[in-house]
């Protein structure tokens, strides 16, 4: 499903040394997530959680090693091979990334329309999804007219509407109160129960405690795996204190 093999990642440098490559944001990250699993992605700020998720939804390619997502080895795959894989992945971004000039309905319908679903069959699905996240009444509103939590629910609806095989969420509870955060988690668990592989990056310890599941712990771009729970590929580590 998702497999990282000795992955290294550098971002292109900016500032005075434009064109140089920066420090490695990820180094020697190795793990594999089985299909249908639920995984927490944990670590302090700047540890590289978002970077790992970006590699998973093909917004980046590794500078070193191999990332395999849904059967595609992305490191050297031709560019044209990526879009079909992206369409099987749902992503909830911390900053939502909704299109501000499209209605809530059209934002949620985006993945279905990109997949070429006919308009007639799509209306019922989108309406049902909006009902599920409790935004039925706001279907025709524009995202800037919504509250932060409402926008987040639109982002979630857009991420799951096409029943992705892989669902990624980056700090999905950042803008939610704890009741809404629990509701969101229930939703992610439901998707997981229906067979979707889910990865959630967070530093909300309370949430993790509420739903214990296997976790990947990152620290300064390296995988911290004290139990060696991820099998023989796991990174050998230098015994970091828990983050």
């Amino acid at each position: 499903m998702v497999r990282f093999e000795a992955v290294g990642l550098r971002y292109p440098g900016t500032g005075p040394h434009r064109g140089d490559w920066g420090e490695e944001a990820l180094a020697d990250v190795t793990f594999a997530l089985p299909p249908g699993s639920f995984t927490w992605l944990l670590g302090p700020s700047g540890a590289g959680k978002s970077s790992v998720l970006r590699l998973m939804h093909l917004a980046l390619r590794p500078t070193r090693g191999e990332v395999e997502v849904l059967g595609l080895r992305t490191a050297r795959a031709p560019r044209a091979a990526l879009p079909p894989i992206r369409r099987r992945i749902g992503v909830v971004f911390q900053d939502f990334r909704l299109l501000p000039y499209l209605s809530v309905f059209d934002n949620v319908a985006l993945p279905l329309r990109l997949a070429g679903r006919p308009e007639a069959s799509l209306k019922a699905d989108v309406t049902e999804m909006l009902r599920w996240v409790g935004l039925q009444a706001k279907a025709l509103a524009l995202p800037p007219e919504l509250s932060g939590g409402e926008q987040q629910r639109v982002a979630i609806a857009r991420a799951v509407i096409h029943r992705p095989d892989l669902l990624l969420a980056d700090e999905p509870t950042g803008n939610l109160d704890s009741r809404q955060a629990r509701r969101l988690l229930a939703l992610l668990r439901e998707m997981n129960r229906l067979g979707t592989t889910v990865v959630v990056a967070t530093h909300d310890d309370e949430l993790v405690a509420r739903f214990p599941a296997p976790s990947l712990l990152l620290h300064e771009g390296r995988l911290h795996d004290p139990d060696n729970a991820r099998g023989p590929f796991a990174a050998e580590d230098d015994g970091l204190a828990e983050a």
Binding site: A80, R97, L99, P111
Partner: peptide, 16 residues
């Protein structure tokens, strides 16, 4: 730019 990046991330092809 932002909208294009969103559509690209959702799996829109260059041709789209």
């Amino acid at each position: 730019r932002d909208a294009i990046e969103v559509l690209h991330g959702l799996g829109a092809r260059d041709a789209d």
